[in-house]
Amino acid sequence: MKKIIAMLLCLCLVFSLAACGKKDTGSDGNTANNGATTGAEATKAPAKDKGGVDVGIVLPTKDEPRWLQDQARFEDVISSTDYTVEVLFSQGSSANEKTNVETLIAKGIKVLIICAQDAAAAAAAVEEAKDAGVVVISYDRLITDTDAIDYYVTFDSVAVGEAMGKYLVDNATGTGNPLYLYAGAATDNNAFLFFEGAWNILQPKIADGTFVIKNSSEAIAAQDKATLTRDEQSAIIGQVTTNWDFNEAKSKAEAHLTSAKAADKGKCYILAPNDGTSRSIADVFAADADVTEYFITGQDAEVASVQYIIDGKQSMTVFKDTRTLAADAMNMAIEVIEGKTPATDATYNNLVKDVPSKQTATVVVTKDNVKSALIDSGYYDASEFTGLK
C-alpha cells in the first residue's frame, strides 16, 4: 500500500512540473501577451485574436492638439474594423520615429500610415518598411526623397495656403499695408506647399503695392516673382520659420515688432502657418501699442483657436476635418489589405516620384460660421466654447 501511495505522489509531481513548464500560447502558437500593449505611446484597438498587427500608425507628437484630435478620429474609425491597429507617437524625434516603424514592422504590419516628423529623415524608416513588404501611406505630410511611398492621403495643402492668402487679400484696403510672413518647419514639405499656396494669392497684391513685406529680406528680394523655386522658398522659410513651435513663433514675432518702426505697424496682415503659432503671434501683436488692428490666419480648427476666433483674437482658421482624413487613410489601408487598388484623385511629387494621392476638402472658418462649420457638423460640442452665437 505504501508503495502505491509513493508511486501516485511521484506521478503527481511529474504532472505538476510539466504544467509549470508550459507557456500560454495563442491560436497561432505564439506566446500570448494577454492583451498588453507595449510602450507608453501606443494605442491598440479591439481586433480579431489572430496575432500581430495589420495596420501601424505613426504620428509626430502628442504635444500639439491637432495630433490628439487625429488620434481620436483614428480610434473612432479603428473601432468599426476587424483589423488590428497600433498607434505610436514619435514625440518630435526622428530617431523615435524610426524605432516606432521598426517596432511595427517586427509586429508584422501589412500597411504603415505615417505622418513624418521630418519629411526627408523619414525616408530611411519607410524604406525599411518597404523592404519588409509593407505598403506605405504618407499621412498629411508628404515624405520626400524616396520611392518607398505608395500612397499619400492629405488635405490639398496648396489650397490651404491659398485660402489663407485669399482671406488676407479680401480684408485689405488701400495700399502699403504691412505684411508679416511666417512659415512652418523647413523639414516639413507641407510648409512649402502652404507657403506656395499663400504666395500664389499674395504675390500679385505685393507687386501692386497693396501689401508691403516687413519681416523677410528674402521675400522682398523675390517679391516680383509669381512662382518661386524650391531654393527661393527655402530661403524665405529659413528666415520666417516657426518650426511649428509656439515659443519660437512668439520669439520671432517679438523680434520683428521690436525692430519695426511704428509706421510699419498700424493695421497689420499676418500669414501664420497654423493655429498654435497663430495664437502665439496674435498675442504678441495684440500687446504692441503701435498695432491698431491685425488680421491673422491659421489652420487646424484647434479648440483654443476656435475660442480665439469667437473672442476676436484670431481672424480665421482652415478647418481640416480629420474625421474624413483619418477615414480616408484607414479605408485605403483596408483596401490594400483586401487586395484592392485604392482610389486616388491627384499626384504629389516628393522630389523622387509622383505619389498617387487622395485629397480631402477644407473649409475656411471665421467668427461668422463657427457654429455651422464646427458645431452643427458634430465636430465639436457647443459646451466646449464660451460666447458662441
Rank of each mutant, 00 (worst) to 15 (best):
K358G: 08
V169P: 05
A329K: 03
N34I: 07
G92E: 00
L181H: 09
P356L: 02
L168Q: 09
T292C: 12
F15V: 13
M330S: 08
F195W: 06
V136G: 02
D288H: 06
V355L: 00
E338D: 14
N350W: 02
A72G: 08
A282P: 01
Y151E: 05
A287M: 09
A373E: 11
S157R: 09
V364G: 07
D49M: 01
A95V: 11
S280A: 15
A163C: 12
K2D: 14
G266I: 03
D188I: 00
I281G: 01
G165H: 07
V85P: 11
F194D: 03
I4C: 10
V58E: 01
L168P: 00
D290R: 10
F15E: 09
A249E: 06
Q69I: 15
S305V: 15
D170L: 12
I270A: 08
G312A: 03
F15M: 12
G35Q: 02
Y83Q: 07
I109S: 08
L88V: 07
L168G: 04
R230M: 14
K3E: 13
F319H: 12
T242I: 03
S90R: 00
Q117A: 11
E218A: 15
V364D: 08
I5F: 11
K22S: 15
A125H: 03
G52K: 06
Y152K: 00
S278N: 11
I5G: 03
T241C: 10
N215W: 03
A373Y: 01
V87A: 05
A123D: 05
N33W: 04
S280F: 07
T81V: 09
A198D: 02
K110V: 03
P273V: 08
V352G: 02
R66T: 04
A40D: 15
A289F: 11
A249R: 01
A121P: 02
A121E: 02
R73I: 12
C12P: 12
F211I: 08
A123V: 01
N350A: 00
R230I: 15
A40L: 14
T31Q: 12
K130G: 00
I270W: 04
A124P: 05
V101A: 01
V160P: 01
A327W: 13
N274H: 10
Y152E: 01
A255Q: 13
S377G: 09
D24C: 13
K48N: 15
